[in-house]
């Protein structure tokens, strides 16, 4: 059944429904005249539906957690990732407790106090102690989340380093990524869009001595266990460098340089052995072979996560985390800016 015929079917069903209602409405009008007031029977039906559908919703949320929990990203591959994940877990715990208490109460009250003939509601206009209670309790819970959250945030954004981080530039343009390593001096040469010409796609200023040993690459290789200081640039519109597996993201803004630092702690080879990742790869490859597509091998990936134009959805670069030796060997094979220009 094609989606089009499904849509047509749905529209027909709705139209039929409307017609059925019309008939029932007209017949009830004939019988009793005015019948648009809410009757005790309506209250009964709707109240029960509230209970049924409301609890159905709450239960289906549980089902979704069970069925789709596995879809979440695997364990973080960066040093700070664990801190974000534990804060995430605590926040999720708190909001889920509230969710699973408040929603059932809401739907239960709607059912329990459905209108009945001859009963009267209780005149109850306020209770200062009760209101104070539910002002203070959320405030306390939030105080915990705020204090912990700000702690994590400041360690992420203002890291204290024991060793000097490796400086890497991530450069965004419609619709691809380029990286530039700072080379032996660990200093990036000055670059500006005004210098872009020919093979010098990043606009590196070749007069700047620091630029000579810079290395330009189309794949992001990172040594495991070393802090990496990223500098982000964009040449045309805003992009966002999103490293989901490393719990890292930073916008790339034309006209300025933004920064983010993280330490990768799991190599690509290791993460491929992670059982969640293995299960994920297996599931994906089942789908892909069924469709006759290539088999997928897991790679860390850098995505663009700020709308940037027509091919925004396919602006990506592979990330390879490897041992220091492998990284050094790979870097040695790459040409320096001085060599390419």
């Amino acid at each position: 059944m094609s989606p089009i015929s499904i849509i047509v079917l749905i529209v027909l069903v709705v139209l039929t429904l409307v017609q059925v209602m019309r008939i029932s409405e007209i017949s009830s009008e004939i019988q009793k005249g005015e019948d648009n007031e809410v009757s005790p029977k309506d209250n009964n039906t709707q109240g029960r539906l509230m209970l049924l559908v409301g609890f159905g919703f709450v239960i289906s949320v549980l089902v979704m957690y069970v069925a789709w929990g596995r879809l979440s990203l695997p364990e973080p591959s960066s040093a700070h990732g664990a801190e974000i994940d534990s804060l995430w877990n605590l926040s999720m715990l708190i909001i889920n407790i509230v969710f699973f208490i408040v929603q059932p109460i809401l739907f239960y009250f709607a059912y329990k106090y459905r209108g009945k003939k001859g009963t009267k509601a209780t005149y109850y206009e306020h209770n200062n102690r009760l209101e104070l209670f539910w002002t203070v309790v959320p405030a306390l819970a939030l105080a915990v989340l705020i204090i912990w959250g700000l702690n994590v945030w400041s360690t992420l954004m203002m890291p204290e380093n024991e060793e000097e981080p490796i400086l890497v530039e991530v450069y965004a343009q419609q619709f691809n990524w380029t990286v530039r390593y700072s080379g032996g001096d660990n200093e990036l040469g000055y670059a500006t869009v005004h210098e872009i010409a020919g093979a010098n796609i990043l606009g590196v200023d070749t007069q700047d001595p620091a630029s000579a040993d810079d290395i330009v690459a189309k794949e992001l290789h990172l040594p495991v266990g070393k802090p990496i200081q990223f500098a982000f640039r964009a040449q045309d519109v805003i992009h966002s460098a999103y490293f989901p597996h490393f719990r890292a993201q930073m916008n790339c803004v034309p006209g300025s340089v933004t920064n983010f630092q993280f330490t990768p702690i799991i190599t690509t080879a290791e993460i491929r052995q992670n059982k969640d990742v293995k299960a994920h790869v297996e599931e994906v490859n089942e789908i892909r072979t069924a469709k006759g597509e290539d088999v997928w091998e897991f790679n860390y990936v850098l995505l663009c996560n700020k709308i940037c134009g027509a091919a925004h959805y396919n602006m990506q670069m592979d990330i390879i985390v490897e041992t220091q030796d492998e990284f050094d060997a790979w870097l040695k094979e790459q040409k320096t800016v001085a060599e390419t220009l």
Binding site: V38, D42, N43, Q46, G47, M50, L106, F109, A110, Y113, R114, G115, K116, T119, K120, A121, T122, Y124
Partner: peptide
């Protein structure tokens, strides 16, 4: 809603 006489 609590102890109301809810008209749906």
């Amino acid at each position: 809603l609590w102890k109301g006489n809810i008209q749906f």
